[in-house]
């Protein structure tokens, strides 16, 4: 009996949270269309998400491309189809690994930072102070961040794609003994407009997920430093899960 009640409560809380999140998104979007705007806040976050994530995103993409070349080679060589390595690396990186790795890395960096800094503002009454100074926290904090995430993530994904493909190229040339001209030609031939479209669509979606989860958990933080810690964890965990789910959904949509 108690068990049923517990599960019931969890269900109710989940539905409540979903509604709260939807309202949160509506307010965020509403404020994109109602001035005044705060371009400085937008720009600061655009740079923070895009530029300062470059090292981690590049490194993960590079090694993802490298390992992918090795493994696909060992797979294909057993039926003498080594020539497909370039194609597999290109497709897997641009459509799946580039966006997903970039998304997960940025979720860890930015989702956590946003939840922690907004959560701290919440528990130290800085959010309330904004309101008493007639500043909507959505206008000033949330909306510019989410917009920055949506616009900068596609760029970051494109960079991850290029570096990932380059990682595959490096291994293929130096470890697997491919002819660089042939490898580049194979890569070039397998490239399609669709790869770019998928990268941009996934990037924008993941950018929206990361920033909105970071802001949402930060904004509803309760209970001091402990609450800030929980908000940070939740933001990273749930945005990572959502990234993987939406990655599948988008792949299926473009399939």
């Amino acid at each position: 009996m108690e068990m049923i009640q517990k599960v019931g409560n969890m269900g109710v809380n989940f539905v409540k949270a979903v509604f709260q999140f939807i309202l949160f998104l509506i307010q965020t979007i509403h404020n994109w269309f109602s001035p005044p705007y705060y371009p400085k806040v937008f720009l600061k976050n655009f740079i923070e998400i895009g530029f300062y994530s470059l090292p981690v995103v590049s490194l993960t993409a590079l090694f993802a491309g490298m390992v992918l070349a090795l493994q696909s080679y060992s797979g294909f060589s057993s039926f003498s189809a080594e020539g497909a390595v370039a194609t597999v690396v290109e497709i897997a990186i641009t459509r799946e690994l580039g966006p997903v790795f970039a998304g997960l890395m940025v979720a860890g960096r930015i989702g956590a930072t946003m939840a922690a800094s907004i959560g701290t503002m919440k528990v130290t009454e800085q959010i309330d102070a904004l309101k008493t100074l007639s500043m909507s926290p959505f206008k000033y904090i949330v909306s510019p961040r989410v917009l920055a995430g949506i616009l900068v993530m596609p760029l970051l994904v494109l960079i991850a794609d290029i570096i990932g493909v380059f990682g595959g190229f490096l291994v293929s040339i130096h470890e697997l003994g491919f002819n660089p001209y042939v490898y580049i030609k194979d890569t070039y031939n397998s490239m399609k407009m669709m790869d770019l479209t998928i990268g941009v669509a996934k990037g924008a979606t993941f950018g929206a997920i990361i920033t909105s989860m970071g802001c949402y958990y930060g904004y509803y933080t309760e209970g001091g430093a402990d609450g800030v810690g929980k908000a940070t964890t939740n933001a990273v965990v749930y945005s990572s899960i959502l990234i993987l789910i939406f990655n599948y959904v988008l792949t299926a949509v473009f399939f």
Binding site: M121, T124, E125, Q126, D128, A129, L130, T132
Partner: peptide, 12 residues
């Protein structure tokens, strides 16, 4: 309206 919060609530 002006408000002084008990703990200042300065934007850090």
């Amino acid at each position: 309206i002006g408000m002084l919060f008990q703990n200042g609530a300065l934007f850090d």
